[in-house]
Each structure stands twice: as C-alpha cells, then as structure tokens.
C-alpha cells in the first residue's frame, strides 16, 4: 500500500503498512512507538486544563524518551544509555515532588487545579 499526503513531492510518502508489521522488530519500530507516545503526551498537555493531568502527560513524554534510549542501548550494546535513563528517572522524581507541592499550594489558594485561573501574571 502506498500512501501519499503531498502529491508527488516525496516529502510525506510512506510505504510501510504491511511491510512494517511483517518486519522483525528493529530500530524503526522503537522510533515509531516512542514518537507515538511522545505525541500523545504533547496532545494531552495541550488539550487538558487540569494541572495534574498535564503533569502526567509530561511523565508520559519522559517515558517515551526513556524507551528509545533503552532500545538504542540494546541495539548498540552500550550501557551508558541505560544510566542516562536512570538519571532521567531521578530528575523526574524530584520534579514530581516539587511540582505536586506547588499544585497543592495552588489548590489551597484558589480551590481549583484549573490552569486557566493561573493567569494573574498577565494582568
């Protein structure tokens, strides 16, 4: 199956529908999966107004990157990438601790987690 989105310019031509599913798993599959998870995270962060859900979408994006790092670590047989994943997890844990404290404080002040209320700096 041949899918073309921009005529014959060749920029957006894909030719993978059946081939992609039949191929043995390789780096392209992991790139595609991470990209999909990352895009879902971006969409969630743009779509939702609940500050906690936006935070969870950021965690989802971090995990998509982690998955890709581990995949390339496996492909190239290198342990460094797995340690980078370890450090990303450390930073994510610290970020969540501080971020949730900020959200709880915000809830105490305005009794809502709606981010549209937090536009005081504009006025």
């Amino acid at each position: 199956m041949h899918l073309s989105l921009c005529g014959n310019t060749g920029i957006f031509t894909f030719n993978f529908t059946f081939l992609f599913f039949k191929m043995p798993v390789n780096s392209t599959h992991y790139l595609f999966l991470s990209l999909l998870l990352f895009s879902i995270g971006i969409m969630g962060a743009l779509m939702r107004r609940n500050a906690i859900i936006i935070f969870m979408c950021i965690e989802l994006m971090l995990n998509a990157v982690n998955l890709l790092l581990v995949a390339f670590s496996k492909i190239y047989g290198d342990a460094d990438a797995q340690l980078f994943v370890f450090f990303i997890m450390v930073v994510a844990a610290a970020e969540v601790a501080v971020g949730l404290a900020i959200i709880v404080m915000m809830y105490r002040k305005v009794h809502s987690v709606d981010i549209n209320i937090l536009n005081r700096l504009k006025h």
Partner: peptide
C-alpha cells in the same frame, strides 16, 4: 500534536534501520 507527529515521522523516515 498531529503535525508534530508528522514532521518527526518525515524526518525519521530516512533514518538508517538498525537490526537488533
């Protein structure tokens, strides 16, 4: 989000396939 997906997809399309 979908446009970001398409742009990155177009850029990784030419990536070399590494078999694990």
């Amino acid at each position: 989000g979908g446009v970001l997906f398409l742009v990155i997809l177009a850029s990784i399309k030419t990536a070399k396939t590494e078999y694990m």
